[in-house]
Simulated assay, not measured.
Amino acid sequence: MGHGGDVIDELTTDHREVADYFGQFHRAPPGSHDRKRLLDRLTVELVRHSVAEEQHLYPAVREHLPNGGKIADKELADHAQVEQMLKELEGMEPRDPAFDPTVRALQREVIAHIHDEESTLFVRMRRDCGEDTLWDLGEKVRTAKKTSPTRPHPGTPSTPPANRLVDPGIGMVDRARDLLTGRGR
């Protein structure tokens, strides 16, 4: 899918890609290597998306929206839960009895988060942020995704400024590991 536009367009495109990966996962034969490959690809996309939101979207939510701090804190808590599930899945193989139920739980959590962002948060962002702000955030999110980690790292900072300092270094290590192992292709 094409990326570009303001932050809402960018993140909505990510959401569609994530939903597509879940669909591909469920169409792959249970216990197959294809399921692990698709979960790896899904993980890469979810982590990159989450890191970019944590670095740029949620600070803007705090700044521009009424009760923005409360909203951002809820979104960060959602991300922490998803990241923990991704970490659990990272150590599982497709034939593990807990693998498919954990992916289904992950999907429920992610789809609920997507629905909440698209039906509430993005509507409020369009209403309360200027067009220039939304376009600037879109560029920042795209840039952040290029250097962000590709694997879950629960316990690393999820708010600026610490995440903006730590994430690119972790991302470089993750991408080197991915290159060596072929993960995420």
Rank of each mutant, 00 (worst) to 15 (best):
K146E: 01
F22M: 03
E139R: 15
R185F: 07
V61L: 01
M85F: 08
R183F: 02
E53W: 08
F99L: 00
E117N: 07
L39F: 13
A105Q: 10
L57K: 13
R151Y: 10
H49F: 07
K140W: 01
I114C: 04
K36R: 11
R37D: 15
L57F: 12
R185G: 01
D20Q: 13
Q55I: 11
E90I: 00
P154G: 08
T133P: 00
E54G: 04
S119W: 00
V166P: 01
A77F: 03
A77R: 10
R27F: 01
T12A: 07
V110I: 15
T43W: 03
W135C: 08
R108M: 10
L165I: 15
G184L: 07
V110K: 01
R35V: 11
E83S: 03
A28P: 05
V44L: 12
E75C: 09
P29A: 15
R27L: 07
L137M: 05
T156A: 11
E45D: 14
E90S: 05
R127K: 14
R164T: 11
E88I: 04
F25G: 09
H115F: 03
M172V: 13
R142C: 03
D78F: 00
D9K: 13
D128N: 12
I111D: 03
P66Q: 11
P101M: 06
L134S: 06
D100I: 04
H15Q: 09
V61C: 04
M1L: 07
P161T: 08
P30K: 12
D136E: 09
D178E: 14
S50K: 05
V61Y: 01
I170K: 14
V51G: 03
S148F: 06
V103R: 01
R41I: 13
D20N: 10
A52N: 02
E88W: 03
L42Q: 06
A176P: 02
G138Q: 10
D174S: 09
K87Q: 08
A144S: 14
L76M: 12
Q81G: 03
E109R: 13
R183E: 13
A52V: 11
A144K: 12
D136G: 11
E17C: 07
E90W: 11
T12Q: 08
H3D: 06
P94Q: 04
V123R: 15
G4R: 05
D78R: 00
R41Q: 15
L46A: 04
F22V: 14
V51E: 04
V166C: 06
R104Y: 06
H56D: 01
L38D: 10
R183T: 14
E93D: 15
D96W: 09
P149V: 08
Q81C: 00
F22G: 05
D34E: 15
R48M: 10
D14N: 09
E53A: 05
I114S: 02
D6L: 07
D128M: 09
E93A: 11
L165P: 09
T147K: 12
E63W: 02
I170V: 15
W135L: 14
G69A: 09
I71F: 02
V61N: 04
G130H: 13
R185D: 02
V51W: 09
M85D: 08
E75N: 12
G184D: 13
H113Q: 05
D96Q: 06
